[in-house]
Amino acid sequence: MIPYTVLVLLVAVERLAELVVARRNSRWSRDRGAVEYGSGHYPVMVLLHTALLAGCLAETWLTDRPFLPWLGWPMLALALGAQALRWWCITSLGPRWNTRVLVVPGLPLVTGGPYRRLRHPNYLAVVVEGAALPLVHSAWVTAAVFTLLNLPLLTVRLRCETAALTRCAPAT
């Protein structure tokens, strides 16, 4: 369980790195007149994503969940792939990436990187990670609860982001 605990703590450190990038990018966006959308659901999203990490650790330690190699190794590969996709999104969006929905009016939509194929690839990373990270160490309750709670939140977030980008994107 120690290696899994280290993995979850490393993901937590990665989340903190995301927040540092997001804070810097927020300043960049706001300096250029960014408009924020969906701020009401943001605290719920932060709480749910924090609970995912806490749930991974709590369920594994409190219920003595085993590491099942046939499940754990593929889920680790998916969790790492989700991280790679997330950082590909972050680098593709550059200073426009954020954990909040901040849109600078007049800027064209990003169509490079993973956005060439998917409209919201970062949320694919969230969905995959939310299922895979807990299952690395058989925390199936955490995987199921996060997934069920994340679905309505993700629906709200996608609608919010799509509407914001539609309103703020320049006419073509």
Rank of each mutant, 00 (worst) to 15 (best):
M1E: 11
I2W: 13
T5C: 09
T5R: 07
T5L: 15
L9G: 10
L10M: 10
V11T: 04
V13F: 15
E14H: 11
L16D: 14
L19T: 06
V20G: 07
V20A: 13
A22L: 11
R23N: 13
N25A: 05
R27Q: 09
R27C: 06
R27T: 09
W28C: 01
W28I: 04
W28P: 02
S29L: 09
R32T: 00
R32F: 00
A34Y: 00
V35I: 14
E36N: 01
G38H: 03
G40A: 14
G40V: 13
G40C: 03
V44H: 12
M45A: 15
L47H: 03
L48C: 01
L52S: 00
L53W: 04
A54P: 00
G55F: 11
C56F: 08
E59W: 13
T60R: 12
L62A: 15
T63A: 15
D64V: 13
W70F: 11
L71F: 08
G72C: 12
W73V: 14
A77F: 04
A77T: 12
A79H: 10
L80I: 11
L80Y: 07
Q83P: 03
A84M: 11
A84E: 12
L85S: 09
R86Q: 04
I90Y: 01
I90R: 00
I90G: 06
I90C: 04
S92K: 02
P95E: 12
P95K: 00
P95M: 05
R96G: 02
W97T: 00
W97G: 01
W97P: 02
T99D: 05
R100D: 13
R100I: 01
L102S: 02
V103Y: 06
P105F: 08
L107A: 04
P108E: 02
V110K: 00
T111K: 04
T111Y: 00
T111H: 10
G112T: 01
G112D: 10
P114S: 01
Y115Q: 01
L118Q: 04
H120M: 05
P121R: 00
P121A: 07
N122L: 02
A125V: 08
A125K: 09
V126N: 09
V127G: 00
V127K: 04
V128I: 15
G130C: 07
G130P: 03
P134A: 09
P134G: 01
S138C: 11
W140V: 10
W140H: 05
V145E: 09
T147G: 02
L148R: 00
L149W: 11
L151R: 07
L153S: 03
E161W: 00
T162H: 15
T162W: 08
T162Y: 12
A163K: 02
A163Y: 13
L165Y: 04
L165A: 07
T166R: 11
R167K: 13
R167H: 15
A171E: 10
A171T: 03
A171Y: 06
A171H: 03
